[in-house]
């Protein structure tokens, strides 16, 4: 009997559980894949991996620094380790990630679970909305934030098949299986245009926020605005070409991220636009960089941080208004 209950693959929509299945599938294909757990597997979804591959799970105890450097050592000898803990705890192992993994170009694929606001009611200790500020500035590290389960599966495969360090942000909550389309193929360093109905507003999403962006796009369209939605799962490397293309075609941009509005997606967009000399107003959707995340139901938090689709519409309209559109 399994130690932890295993949600059924065809019933659960939670990305954490689908991640457990996807990694277990990959480990069936690649015998050198191992998962490394710092005692959160029943939450992170790694317990599903353990169910299928008990011999491929390395338990290191509640020791996140250890988890990352041990993973570096495992990778040195040909394993492909996927260490997984709450994304918030990357704050504890940032130096190990920086030195033991990224500086040494070790083939380690870190899974940051429970990213952003969707962590339930745990409070600021367990919520992670500031971490991209450092993660996106670590040389050699690729940072990816998938927005639906199909994309997550493709990202895991890409990480397994691409030599070098990865950091993959995984959300806890339910997501759609495919937000983008049946023919979609994730490519590292590439974003994708999800909808394009005109040139008034450009929405740029990453991770979970693709869902909110799609709803907001429909609301904006129903108000008579032309909307283009680009989704950027690959934050590092970032698809600056797709951004430049959008900037040349729309009047304003709104960024949507399950992270604070400094150091993450908005900063990537703002840096890239400034670097290319592209002048376009940009509104932001995301949490407050000066705030520790409050506790509460996720809907309360989304309302508090003004991250709902209605907020996106409001920010888009305000940004257009400020720009005199």
């Amino acid at each position: 009997m399994a130690q932890f209950s295993i949600p059924k693959r065809d019933e659960t929509k939670e990305m954490r559980y689908q991640m457990g299945y996807a990694l277990a599938d990959l480990a069936g294909e690649y015998e050198n894949i191992v998962a490394v757990d710092a005692d959160l597997r029943s939450s992170s979804g790694l317990h599903i991996f353990e169910h299928y591959h008990p011999d491929k799970l390395v338990k290191v105890g509640i020791a996140e620094q250890n988890m990352i450097s041990i993973s570096a050592g495992l990778s040195q000898e040909g394993f492909i380790p996927f260490p997984c803990t709450f994304d918030a705890f990357c704050r504890r192992f940032m130096d190990q990630l920086y030195i033991s993994v990224a500086y040494s170009k070790c083939n380690v694929k870190v899974l940051g679970a429970y990213v952003g606001l969707f962590t339930g009611k745990a409070g600021a200790t367990h919520q992670s909305d500031k971490e991209l500020g450092l993660l996106l500035r670590i040389p050699n590290l690729r940072v990816v934030e998938p927005g639906c389960n199909e994309e997550m599966r493709q990202v895991l495969r890409t990480a397994a098949e691409t030599v070098g360090p990865f950091y993959i942000r995984i959300v806890r909550c339910q997501v759609e299986d495919n937000e983008i389309g049946p023919d979609y193929r994730f490519k590292l360093g590439k974003g994708v245009t999800v909808t394009d109905s005109g040139s008034d507003v450009g929405l740029i999403s990453t991770g979970y926020m693709i869902k909110t962006a799609k709803i907001a796009a429909e609301k904006l369209k129903s108000k008579g605005f032309g909307v283009r939605l680009d989704h950027h799962p690959s934050l590092k490397p970032f698809d600056a070409d797709l951004l430049a293309d959008m900037a040349s075609k729309v009047s304003v941009i709104v960024t949507l991220e399950n992270h604070c509005v400094s150091g993450g997606l908005f900063s990537l967009v703002a840096e890239s636009l400034a670097r290319e000399g592209l002048q376009i107003p940009v509104g932001t959707i995301g949490t407050d960089p000066e705030d520790f995340i409050h506790t509460g139901h996720v809907n309360d938090l989304l309302a508090h941080y003004q991250m709902t689709s209605d907020d996106v519409v409001k920010v888009a309209e305000q940004t257009m208004s400020k720009a005199g559109i």
């Binding site: 390395v58 620094q65 250890n66 990352i68 450097s69 041990i70 993973s71 570096a72 050592g73 495992l74 990778s75 040195q76 000898e77 040909g78 394993f79 380790p81 130096d95 190990q96 920086y98 030195i99 033991s100 500086y103 040494s104």
Partner: peptide, 24 residues
């Protein structure tokens, strides 16, 4: 074998390497 210098990394890395040998 491995980039080091920030202290407190080498033993954990060595544990990973030694564990690999056991697994292999």
């Amino acid at each position: 074998e491995q980039n080091t210098g920030a202290l407190g990394h080498g033993l954990a890395f060595s544990v990973g390497v030694a564990l690999s040998a056991k697994k292999d």
